[in-house]
């Protein structure tokens, strides 16, 4: 049982939760994730770690309500506990001095990109973060990302904040302006990561994407999270979660993410009743 220390809604559908997890806080590195269960009958869902503090003994998760488990999690209050929390899982982001690193965070994907921006900056990289959302309210953690970056570019689909357009438009503009980009790290909805990867492939810019697939055990035992990368099948939980965006079969991955659409809806409807 891991105690909840803080909870705050960032938007009606997105909340930040600080959880007591001293060992994970000490060990976690940028890019890693946890798996949790909210109750004894609960499912295991993976969530990327958004922040953490070894001295304080806590980690932070930023979660979007998409189904029953995230809904139930959102209803837990400080001093209540999360039934099971396991981590850190997955391989950490490969951090080194690349030069100019563009961190692309889309919607809820901004949260897990934050520790990567921090680590890239700490390694001496110039970090430009592109934060994208459908509308102004969905662009989260701007202050934190600004603190971890040399520059921040905001895009919104509706133009309510920053540049009107998609994150790919912002990357395209940089390319057009002759900005040298050594690495792109993109985290967000699969469709965003797909189009970022397609764009950067055109310009031969190395691109990492962080995948959030369906998982069960998270330790390489079940294979629920498998994706096609190049001509190989990889397991996101132990081989990832980060892969070369130019090699990931996003279309297959998106289909696999929808495997339990009907059951997820049934479970949510039942919960809300």
């Amino acid at each position: 049982m891991n105690k909840i220390l803080e909870k705050e809604f960032i938007t009606p559908e997105v909340f930040r939760m600080r959880v007591e997890a001293p060992e994970i806080a000490r060990k976690r590195k940028a890019g890693q994730f946890i798996i949790l269960r909210t109750c004894d009958e609960g499912e295991r869902i993976p969530l990327t770690i958004a922040d953490g503090n070894a001295d304080g003994g806590w980690i932070e998760l930023v979660v979007q309500i998409v189904g029953k488990t995230t809904k139930a999690l959102s209803e837990l209050e400080p001093d209540q506990g999360i039934c099971d929390l396991v981590g850190p899982l997955g391989r950490p982001t490969h951090i080194e001095l690349f030069g100019h690193v563009i961190i692309v965070g889309g919607g809820i994907g901004i949260a897990p990109s934050h520790p990567i921006a921090q680590a890239m900056k700490a390694a001496g990289n110039r970090v430009t973060s592109i934060l994208g959302g459908r509308t102004k309210d969905l662009v989260i953690m701007e202050d934190k990302m600004a603190a971890a970056s040399d520059a921040v570019v905001i895009t919104t689909d509706d133009g309510s904040y920053g540049m009107k357009g998609l994150v790919t438009d912002a990357i395209q503009k940089m390319v057009d302006d002759g900005v040298k980009i050594d690495l792109v790290v993109a985290i967000g909805p699969p469709i965003m990561m797909k189009f970022v990867s397609l764009l950067t492939m055109k310009y031969e810019i190395p691109t990492l994407v962080s995948l959030n697939t369906i998982m069960v055990d998270g330790t390489g035992m079940c294979g629920a999270c498998r994706v096609t990368v190049g001509d190989e099948t990889k397991f996101v939980c132990v081989d990832g979660p980060e892969f070369d965006g130019h090699k990931v079969d996003f279309d297959e991955m998106m289909k696999r993410q929808r495997m339990y659409e009907a059951e997820e809806k049934e479970s949510m409807d039942r919960y809300l009743k």
Binding site: V216, D217, Y260, E266, S267
Partner: peptide, 19 residues
């Protein structure tokens, strides 16, 4: 694992689905 550990045979009483 879905059927045994996660008790998907009791879905939707339990949360883990199985096809």
């Amino acid at each position: 694992t879905r059927a045994n550990l996660m008790q998907a045979y009791s879905f939707p009483e339990t949360d883990t689905p199985i096809a």
